[in-house]
Design a protein around this nucleic acid. Structure first.
Lengths: 347, 347
DNA sequence: TCTAGCGTAGAAACCGATGTCTATCGAATG
DNA sequence: CATTCGATAGACATCGGTTTCTACGCTAGA
């Protein structure tokens, strides 16, 4: 009647052995006579036996799960990191949990807490990251707690929490990419470059700060002064870029190139430029950041900075599960030249 | 020394109560004196106690987890379904596991098996779906097994397995969208429409079949014969569209419009058309399917069919967790008119 | 022949939280 | 004053595998 699910005990009874023996057949790390094994396997098949991972986890074994925490599943670059994580997790025999935070630090902390309850082998945080002190402290606490429990907190594409905090850090050279792209624009003769997507006054984002830093450093290297008015704060989305660019144009700002902090922003900027009757790259050059898949399909193709997204995700899982490897890695970025940047022309 | 993690017992000892009482404080469904509760809560805080979900799951409680199985995390439409699933799961207090199958039916079956081990509250399969008999049979078996265990198999954007198989089905009107778009093209005067991304000979995909069906039915409604040579099999990716379109052009096929089976295919087709010196929509009209976010950002904007992706994901979770609701739903699709389709012009 | 050793299998404790069943205290009722 | 009920809390079995620790049968070496 109550068929429910078969347990080790049921299988044992059917095969005429003890539960211990069934368990040993399942794990396979202990000698079991061939004939016994065969009988047990048959019983398992006949009863459609399915292991209970919770029972297994309870008696000490690893949960074989990694958790992945991101802002938004639909974010073009995040999705690729997720792919890398999923791939590597699968390769290492792990399952993968995904949680979206929608950029809410409070929710992020809640999610990490939930992952502690799940006893995940690793908790991978990707993107963004606030600089808020209380937040950092709570996160450090989690890092220590996870570490003590044999798990690991991984910061992926965000800066370390501090030297004494046991975390795995996988970054990419955010500032270097911005530096390279800005240099590229400067070497094309641009002297008035707008940076759209710098920091909002309120929320400090390290990603944004780094990109601004690279922008500034390149100007310094070239001995070109930059116009603070052309460094405009904005979000990381298409709409943010569109709004910011339109305002810049309306205000009559003078610039021959736009460096958008993300490709999504660049797409918004592109639309705003078009609406204003400006051609790219003839009137204004446009550069992005992230090299999302569609960057190549815009017309003109978007010149942008490539981030090794999948690699980032794969590395995060690999390092977290093998502590013998270095626990702080910085992956490189490089610019991808397409059609959206041309030589500067006076306006 | 061995700090490890605190258990209910540790908390109980520290608070000077029994484990049962601690458990009651945690669940909160049983009367506990205010003073006792306070002491227990303090002990929990002091010991940094974290619940063990596996122990809880073992003693009968639900696992509060839904599993989400898709082809590829980076697929533009899948990501949105994932977002819907994640949102609704969170809203219902569930965590969310994500597994990618890379379109491999064998891996899909393996993943579903893993989800049975996890005792997930629901297992949501999205996209694709083979028509292969052995596969269907195995999947039906899983559906029954999950059902018997109080869980649920959800088919999202794919056809039912059969009437006697206990599943939740959330579809969208695939054929209707293709019908509407084809009608739109026909009403613009197009009489030679290429359908790129029909079925590959080997692998039968219901999604593709439905889209072809809508295409054919629209022609029949309009009394316009269609050219079988213009129905070309192709994958669902950008490269597939590019290759297929280039071959069509090289072969000198006559057509004034292309209906791409997905927006990704459309993007590939667009590139191929451009390379051949054909303008869109002046020389050739182009329509896609899915309305991925970038469809609006192409130039010209891509006329395409909108699928209620997030809604699909949200509905899947909602129905799976509340069996009182109808377990078979078909969500509507509609065409989105942008600039890539124009009136037919003789070539 | 006796014992050491190997291969194999069972009994029972254990992981951590839950829930049932029982017990106690104080207050309220007859 | 005795009894009963309500509020509260503890003891203990339980969920389903895992893992010692022990034991049996058999062969090989002393």
């Amino acid at each position: 009647m109550n068929a429910d699910r078969a347990t080790v005990r049921d299988v044992a009874a059917r095969a005429g052995v003890s539960p211990s023996t069934v368990s040993r057949v399942i794990k396979g790390d202990y000698p079991v006579a061939q004939s016994t094994r065969t009988r047990v396997l048959r019983a398992m098949r006949e009863l459609d036996y399915v292991l209970n991972v919770h029972a297994r986890a309870l008696s000490g074994a690893s949960t074989k799960m990694v958790a992945f925490v991101l802002d938004d599943v639909t974010g073009p670059s995040f999705a690729y990191v997720a792919k890398g994580v999923e791939q590597q997790a699968t390769a290492e025999g792990r399952l993968c949990m995904v949680c979206a935070t929608n950029g809410d630090p409070a929710r992020e902390l809640a999610v990490v807490e939930a992952m502690r309850e799940q006893r995940a082998d690793a908790v991978i945080l990707v993107g963004g990251g606030t600089l808020d002190d209380a937040y950092r402290e709570r996160m450090s606490h989690f890092a220590h707690a996870l570490d003590k429990a044999g798990s690991r907190l991984v910061l992926c594409g965000r800066p370390p929490l501090g030297d004494d905090v046991p975390t795995t850090v996988v970054e990419y050279d955010n500032e270097g990419g911005a530096y390279a792209m800005t240099s590229h624009l400067l070497s094309q003769g641009h002297r008035h470059i707008a940076l759209i997507g710098a920091d909002h006054p309120g929320q400090a984002s390290t990603t944004k700060l780094d990109r601004v830093r690279g922008f500034v450093r390149a100007h310094e290297s070239f001995g070109v002064p930059y116009d603070p008015d052309l460094i405009v704060p904005a979000g990381f989305g298409r709409a943010d870029g569109h709004t910011a660019a339109r305002r810049l144009i309306t205000l009559g700002a003078q610039f021959t190139a736009v460096f958008a902090a993300t490709d999504m922003v660049a797409i918004g900027v592109l639309a705003a430029l078009r609406e204003a009757g400006l051609r790219v790259p003839e009137d204004v050059s446009l550069a992005g950041y992230d090299d999302i898949p569609f960057a190549a399909d815009l017309s003109p193709g978007l010149t942008t900075v490539r981030i090794p997204t999948e690699e980032l995700g794969r590395t995060a899982v690999r390092l977290a599960l093998d502590r013998r490897q270095s626990q702080h890695v910085v992956l490189g970025t490089h610019i991808v030249v397409r059609g959206s940047v041309g030589p500067a022309t006076p306006r």
